[in-house]
């Protein structure tokens, strides 16, 4: 029992660590891509926490094979949401970069003599 809970604590600690790293990256990160990745790390931390919590009742019931299916369903849903959100963010980022380069090009053409201004 103590074994198990220390193991759980380890997992929870890892999850919290992931969340912390992600949070740091999100707040500090100057680049948008880094912030998107940081969000994914935060998400990973949360999902890990949820996976751990799915074993929550084990200590009392001592039935090792039983886990909480609701949380698993939630994690799946959450993963889907996270993936699509990330994809959307990346798509927007690409468009932003395209728009930037499209803006730069005519500028460069105009100032052909002095590139890399």
């Amino acid at each position: 029992m103590t074994d198990l809970s220390s193991q759980l604590l380890l997992y929870i600690g890892t999850a919290a660590g992931l969340f912390g790293i992600g949070l740091y990256g999100f707040i500090v990160g100057p680049q948008t891509l880094r912030r998107i990745l940081a969000l994914n790390i935060i998400g990973a931390g949360i999902f890990m926490l949820m996976v751990v919590l799915a074993y929550r009742g084990l200590a009392e019931e001592a039935a090792l094979t039983l886990t909480d299916p609701v949380l698993h369903a939630l994690i799946l849903t959450g993963l889907v949401v996270a993936v699509s959100a990330t994809a959307f963010a990346l798509a927007l980022l690409t468009r932003l970069n395209q728009a930037k380069s499209a803006q730069c090009k005519p500028d460069q053409l105009r100032h052909g003599q002095e590139p890399e201004q």
Partner: peptide, 12 residues
Amino acid sequence: LNYLLLSLFGSL
């Protein structure tokens, strides 16, 4: 994009 990132962070 800014909105999306903050909104995702809020959701998380």
